[in-house]
Design a protein around this nucleic acid. Structure first.
Lengths: 196, 196
DNA sequence: TTTGCATGTGTACGAGCGTACACATGATGT
DNA sequence: ACATCATGTGTACGCTCGTACACATGCAAA
């Protein structure tokens, strides 16, 4: 009736409400998780402060408060990714009590973990590409590779460990890229052929 | 002495000389090559019209004339890359006349071609990442994989061909990522262990 | 209770980007 | 010879980006 410009009450709620402040401990952790989601969906190239903030439902300014730069977010996100895979790797191989069980552990690792439906294999390839030009990320990949090899060397000699590590890499990558991914039986066949 | 603003001669050479027009057939091809150079140096994420133009020593406007979009340049560049590797693959395996020679061909392929000093392995990983989100590039990788497998099937059964293809992928990728790349002897050992 | 500071929020700025487009030029077919 | 048009060149526009920064708020120490 009076029109929006006629109201003289300057204490009224401003037209654009300020977002309520939230108590949000471990927002930093949530942001790292959101970063991994964005990387998986849009790739490192499509990962921006604004996109991560949107996924985490957080204002843009929060990004620069918690992280000095985009590089820092990427480094922390990929570190978490590599650690989570390396931990599974460790657990499977530590649990194996002899060589035969170790072979089964490797097979299970590939078929049940690395090629599991929910597992974002593209995240690993994104890491490799990013690491090619980011020394900090190269440290992450190298530590991860070392850890994998160490776990394998619990049961296999160093030469075999290195070769199997490469084979695992190739099998997962190939399955991920193919329209016609390898079946668990084919994975088993390839690994057993190599290790038995 | 009279100062630069005192000259009334409007027919004089303008302060910024227009670049001389050049007769440049197959500039399009040169641009694709320049694109591969840029991708190898800066990654797909750092590949821009302006950067490619600078490497090829060509004005920016030339990019949009020869290619409808950046995607089109990337697709053509990666197609060239994949074809050039697939051709070597074909040649090596076609030349082999029995299984033993085929094994040697695979070893030579990895050690002498894929891991050759001048060969940009990062280009392949860049392709994989780009293909994850670009259907056109996924066609390129799948055609490439099929061609590799076909070449291997000249000498090996389909199951072996697929497994060896994956092994090659893993060996090259692993060598590329490691600070401590595998030696030719180690490559030979891994492949012979699998194929003999 | 008061106060300091870690944390949360909104916005502005300059840079680089893809792309569009107007204009220039010379090779080529007639 | 000359007209045409494929090719070559320069520049402007609108957009998104990373980052900086001023201001708000409430927990915790004193």
């Amino acid at each position: 009736m009076t029109g929006t410009t006629a109201d003289p009450d300057l204490t009224a709620t401003p037209p654009v409400a300020r977002r309520a402040r939230r108590h949000d401990p471990n927002r930093r952790d949530r942001l790292i998780g959101a970063a991994l989601t964005v990387i998986a969906e849009r790739g490192v190239a499509g990962t921006t402060h604004r996109e991560i903030a949107k996924v985490a439902d957080v204002p843009l300014g929060s990004m620069t408060y918690h992280f000095a730069s985009l590089d820092e977010i990427l480094a922390e996100a990929f570190t978490r990714h590599a650690d989570s895979i390396a931990r599974v790797f460790d657990e499977r191989l530590t649990a194996a009590r002899n060589r035969d069980e170790a072979v089964e552990a490797v097979i299970a690792l590939v078929t049940d973990d690395l090629l599991a439906p929910g597992h974002d294999l593209v995240l690993t390839v994104e890491l490799y590409v990013a690491a090619a030009r980011n020394p900090r990320l190269r440290t992450v990949t190298q530590a991860w590779m070392q850890r994998s090899r160490d776990a394998l060397e619990i049961h296999f000699d160093p030469t075999t460990a290195r070769e199997v590590d490469a084979l695992i890499e190739g099998l997962t990558l190939h399955s991920a890229l193919s329209t016609d991914p390898m079946t668990p039986a084919q994975i088993r066949h390839a690994i057993e052929r190599y290790l038995r």
